[in-house]
Design a protein around this nucleic acid. Structure first.
Length: 159
DNA sequence: GCCAACGTTGGC
DNA sequence: GCCAACGTTGGC
């Protein structure tokens, strides 16, 4: 079982939305590095933290979900109405993939980005590196556990 | 809304 | 294969 962190802008799709629908395709990935992780590494049963980026309600990790499908062609790439159509993608050899994710749990509080930065195990993660372009980030077991543990603790005075 | 950092594209 | 222009991400 691998562990990940998935970023989403809550105005696009939030953990509230996932809690309501329970299962949702994580579509719209248009980055080759992330596509390759979906294709080559992600497996049913993997765990992923849900991260709200650019969030008025607080940027940070907000909950846990489970990967419930293998990677399959992202249908939105062929939909001109979608947010990120890719008309150069060949339907017989689709360029972009997605997986289905299922809601597991919501954290009792947001683990903010400053707090994530303060976790020693995350020091070399792309998550806390400025300018990183990965919307899906692999986490080690240690990193994953550190964030879960932080979520259960009372917030630090800085928030 | 601004802007820094980065990936992608395309001219050469 | 280089690199400038461009678009996007995402923190602030």
């Amino acid at each position: 079982m691998k562990r990940w962190l998935f970023k989403s802008e809550p105005t696009e799709f939030s953990i509230d939305d996932l809690e309501r629908v329970r299962v949702e395709p994580w579509d719209g990935v248009r980055n080759y590095q992330v596509r390759n992780m979906l294709r080559d590494q992600m497996q049913v049963g993997d765990r992923a933290l849900f991260y709200h980026s650019n969030a008025a309600s607080g940027t940070g990790a907000v909950g846990v979900m489970e990967v419930v499908s293998a990677a399959y062609p992202d249908p939105t790439q062929f939909d001109p109405q979608s947010a990120h159509p890719d008309l150069q993608s060949d339907p017989n050899d689709p360029r972009w993939l997605c997986v289905d994710v299922a809601f597991m749990a919501r954290f009792p509080r947001v683990v903010s980005l400053p707090e994530l930065r303060s976790l020693p195990s995350l020091g070399d993660s792309p998550l806390v590196r400025p300018g990183n372009r990965l919307s899906i980030i692999p986490l080690t077991a240690v990193q994953y556990q550190a964030i879960i543990r932080a979520a259960k603790k009372a917030p630090s005075r800085q928030g």
